[in-house]
Each structure stands twice: as structure tokens, then as C-alpha cells.
């Protein structure tokens, strides 16, 4: 009986001794490497829409693997750290490492990092679209604006920065969004969320725009700041000021159609303004062909 009990305990002891048994390191490495390789998604694409902006909200987004969307053009430039790309009349395509970027007309993109493990881009104006190759662990693809940081690791979603709010909409996969206060929220496929900043924070946009305008430099940037201000605070008391100067900017830039639209909007919204007469005269002299 004692021998039986000894055998019984010995057998269970032997069994339990395998509770922490590990495979040879080479086998473990093969398992992990194989699984990581097989988990890799196909090509992925991110479409990031940056429509002007103005927000304190920061959305840091992590996105998961997705099928592909092809950009309409092949890369024509290979971007390096420090490059700036100005969109021409047609979309400008470039390669950032294995990734493709398309800068829309009027858009401006700065390449802050183009390194094997880190691609970091800043959209300074307009819209840019991104087709991101599958990332391996440790690689990052980031896109920044003044308001939003988007960190891509796979999947498909859109980010729109407009005024003091940023809208995140997830088409496929799942993202983690972090706002300016550091609060995180997960969004799944089909979900969307707006992240809005303190409305008072946008006053600086108008001031900055007027400074640029008075100096006669960087008029496009000034126009962008004014657009962001107006989008963030459509009913602000300073909207009349912003709208008027935006009209002046467009007119100075020779963008007659846009200037006419803005003048019409101004007259509709502020018919009693002492600037209305001047705008009316301008419209009379610059009627649409």
C-alpha cells in the first residue's frame, strides 16, 4: 500500500514537473516568428482628411489590419527626412519608405522622419492621403497636424480636423483615440466620435492670421487660420472680422470665385456692416464671367 502511494505521488509529481516546461528556444522563436508573419495583413491604406483645423483635441489612434485601397498614382519622389512637399495642380505622389503618400493640390506636407522604424509626417495645409504598408512590431507611422496625432498600425479609418473639433470615424478594425486630456476611448468598426477643445482656445488663430495678413506674407497660411477660426466658432462675435479678412485674402490671392462666394456670404450675414458697401462695389466690379 505504501509503495502504491509512493508510486501514485511520484507519478503526479512527475506530471506536475512539466507545469513550467518550455520548448527549446529555437522552437519558441519559430512559433512566434511564424505566427507574427501569418498574422500580417495585406496592404493597408489610411485615408486621412485634414480640412483646415483648429483644435486642442489630440487623437492618437491605433488601427488594425485591413485590406487595401490603391492610390491612383505611382510614387514619383522618394521622401527623406526634412523634405517638404507642396502639392501642385495635380496630386503629388511620393514614397516614404515602403508607404505611399498623395498630397492633394494645394496641400503641403513636411517629412519630419523617414526612417526604417519611424515615418512621421506633418500635414501643414490641405489634404493628404496615405497608403500604409503593414507595419511590423516596433515600426510606427505617424501623421500630425497642429491638432491631431494619428498613429497608424493598420486598418481603415478617417480623421477630420475641422475647427476646434476632430472627428474620428472607423470603417474597419478598431482604434484607440486619446484626447487632449489623455482620456482614451476605443472605437470599433462603424463607430465615430468627435473630440472638441475649449472654444476659447481658437482666438489666437484670428490674431495670428491678422498678423500674417498685415505683413503681407504667408497669405495661404493666414487664409487657413481664418478658415479654421470660422469653422470652430461659426457664430463668434469676431466672425464678421474673420470673414471680411478671408474675403480680402482670397481677392489678393486672385481666387476670384472664392472671394465672390465669401463676399456674398458676408452681405447675407452682415448687411448692416459698414463694410457691406465696399463689398457690394467689389462684387459689382468683379461679377462672375
Amino acid at each position: 500500500m505504501s509503495v502504491d502511494m509512493d508510486n501514485h505521488e511520484a507519478s503526479l509529481e512527475a506530471l506536475r514537473s512539466l507545469s513550467k516546461a518550455r520548448p527549446p528556444r529555437s522552437a519558441e522563436a519559430r512559433i512566434v516568428a511564424g505566427a507574427l508573419e501569418r498574422r500580417r495583413p495585406a496592404r493597408v491604406q489610411l485615408r486621412l482628411i485634414l480640412a483646415g483645423a483648429g483644435a486642442l483635441a489630440v487623437a492618437a489612434l491605433v488601427w488594425v489590419g485591413i485590406p487595401t485601397l490603391q492610390l491612383p498614382m505611382e510614387p514619383i519622389q522618394v521622401a527623406a527626412t526634412g523634405d517638404s512637399v507642396q502639392g501642385g495642380e495635380a496630386p503629388t505622389a511620393l514614397a516614404v519608405g515602403p508607404h505611399q503618400v498623395l498630397v492633394d493640390p494645394g496641400g503641403r506636407l513636411h517629412v519630419e522622419h523617414a526612417e526604417p522604424d519611424l515615418s512621421e509626417l506633418r500635414v501643414e495645409a490641405g489634404r493628404a492621403r496615405f497608403e500604409v504598408e503593414p507595419l511590423v512590431a516596433g515600426q510606427r507611422f505617424k501623421v500630425r497636424t497642429d491638432q491631431v496625432l494619428v498613429e497608424v498600425v493598420g486598418t481603415r479609418f478617417s480623421v477630420e480636423a475641422a475647427g476646434s473639433c476632430s472627428a474620428v470615424e472607423v470603417e474597419e478594425g478598431r482604434v484607440r483615440s486619446t484626447d487632449g486630456r489623455g482620456e482614451q476611448v476605443f472605437l470599433g468598426a462603424g463607430e465615430s466620435r468627435r473630440f472638441c477643445a475649449d472654444p476659447g482656445s481658437e482666438a489666437g488663430l484670428l490674431r495670428e492670421a491678422l498678423v500674417l495678413l498685415s505683413g503681407g506674407e504667408e497669405l495661404e497660411k493666414a487664409a487657413g487660420l481664418l478658415s479654421r477660426f470660422r469653422a470652430s466658432q461659426p457664430d463668434a462675435v469676431l466672425d464678421e472680422e474673420a470673414l471680411y479678412h478671408l474675403f480680402l485674402l482670397r481677392a489678393r490671392l486672385g481666387q476670384a470665385d472664392e472671394a465672390r462666394t465669401l463676399a456674398g456670404e458676408f452681405l447675407d450675414r452682415y448687411p448692416g456692416s459698414d463694410r457691406a458697401e465696399r463689398l457690394g462695389q467689389w462684387l459689382g466690379a468683379n461679377a462672375a464671367p
Binding site: A21, E28, V32, L36, R39, V64, V136, V153, G173, R176
Partner: peptide, 27 residues
């Protein structure tokens, strides 16, 4: 959660942490 969010670093960590256990079970 990180894995569900698709974080590749989280997946790699999960794979590394669990591979030995899964292998042991299979054996």
C-alpha cells in the same frame, strides 16, 4: 484590449508570453 485594438507590439508580447504554454499543451 491592446490586442483587440490591433497593436502589433501587444500581439508580439502575447505571442511571446503564450507560445511556450501552447506548445506545452500541444505536447
Amino acid at each position: 484590449d491592446a490586442c483587440k485594438a490591433g497593436d502589433p507590439a501587444a500581439w508580439e508580447r502575447l505571442f511571446r508570453e503564450r507560445s511556450a504554454q501552447l506548445y506545452r499543451w500541444s505536447i
